[in-house]
C-alpha cells in the first residue's frame, strides 16, 4: 500500500492566497456580522414601526372614506368613527382591512395594499364606500420612489384623481389627459410609479370587491334583526 501526499501543483501558497474567497475574507466576515446586527435591529424595532403605521392608518381612515373636508367637520363636531381591523384572505394575499362604522352603520372600508413600485415596495391605503362600488380615497403609507418624480404619487392633487372612480373598472395610467372613466393621468417622468399605484389598487380591489360586499351585506342582517326585536 502506498500513501501519496497531495500537493497542489505550482507554487501552492500563492495560488491559495490569490483565491478570491481568501482575498475577500474580511468582506465576508463583516457582511455576516453586519447582517446579523441588522437582523437584530429589525427584530427589535419592527413592532414599533408597525404600530406607528397602524396609528397613521387609523388616523387616515375617516379622511379616506368621507373626504378631507367632511372628515374634519365630523371630527370637529365630536363624532367618532368606530374602526375595526380585520384580516381578509383573497387570492394569494392576506389584506388588512379596516371597517369604519358610524352610528352603527358601515360607512366604508379601507384596504391596506402593497406592491412593487419603481424603487421599492409601495404601501397604499385604499378607501371604498360601504357597498364597494366607488373609491373614496387613496393614501400613500410608505414609498421610496425617486424624489421629485416618483414621490409625487404622495401629492394630494394626484391622489384625488382616484376619488369616485368605480371599483369594477381596471384603472390605467395614461400619458395623455385622462378622459376615459378608468383613466388616471400619469405623473410626467414617473410612468412606472403611476402604473404601479394603479396596479396595486386594481389588484387589491379585484381580490376584495366580492368578499367585502358580502361582508357588508352579512353584517347588515344581524343589525336589522336586532332593530326588529327592539
Amino acid at each position: 500500500m502506498t500513501t501519496t501526499t497531495q500537493e497542489t501543483p505550482g507554487s501552492g501558497k500563492n495560488r491559495w492566497t490569490n483565491f478570491f474567497i481568501v482575498q475577500a475574507w474580511l468582506v465576508l466576515l463583516l457582511a455576516s456580522f453586519f447582517g446579523a446586527a441588522l437582523a437584530g435591529i429589525q427584530l427589535t424595532l419592527a413592532p414599533k414601526i408597525e404600530a406607528n403605521k397602524l396609528n397613521e392608518t387609523l388616523e387616515k381612515v375617516p379622511e379616506l372614506i368621507l373626504g378631507a373636508d367632511a372628515a374634519r367637520a365630523s371630527k370637529d363636531s365630536g363624532q367618532q368613527m368606530e374602526i375595526n381591523r380585520q384580516y381578509m384572505t383573497a387570492g394569494t394575499k392576506t389584506y388588512s382591512v379596516f371597517k369604519a362604522e358610524k352610528d352603527n352603520q358601515t360607512a366604508g372600508w379601507v384596504v391596506k395594499a402593497s406592491g412593487q413600485g419603481y424603487a421599492d415596495k409601495i404601501e397604499l391605503l385604499v378607501g371604498v364606500d360601504e357597498t364597494v362600488n366607488t373609491i373614496t380615497g387613496l393614501f400613500v403609507l410608505d414609498q421610496k420612489e425617486t424624489p421629485g418624480l416618483g414621490n409625487k404619487i404622495m401629492e394630494p392633487d394626484w391622489r384625488r384623481q382616484f376619488v369616485s372612480k368605480p371599483t369594477h373598472l381596471l384603472l390605467t395610467a395614461v400619458k395623455t389627459k385622462a378622459d376615459g372613466p378608468g383613466e388616471i393621468s400619469a405623473i410626467t417622468g414617473a410612468t412606472i410609479s403611476s402604473k404601479a399605484v394603479c396596479d396595486i389598487v386594481n389588484q387589491s380591489l379585484n381580490n376584495l370587491r366580492q368578499p367585502l360586499a358580502k361582508a357588508a351585506s352579512d353584517k347588515k342582517k344581524p343589525s336589522e334583526k336586532q332593530q326588529e326585536k327592539n
Binding site: 453586519f34 446586527a37 441588522l38 435591529i41 429589525q42 424595532l45 414599533k48 414601526i49 406607528n52 403605521k53 397613521e56 424603487a119 414609498q143 421610496k144 420612489e145 425617486t146 424624489p147 414621490n151
Partner: peptide
C-alpha cells in the same frame, strides 16, 4: 449598515420626521 440602523430607528421613534425626510 449604519444608515439602515438610523433609518429603522427614525421610523420607530420619529415616525413623522422619517416620513418627511423620506428617501434622503
Amino acid at each position: 449598515t449604519f444608515v439602515t440602523i438610523v433609518d429603522r430607528f427614525l421610523a420607530a421613534y420619529m415616525y413623522q420626521m422619517s416620513k418627511n425626510l423620506g428617501p434622503y
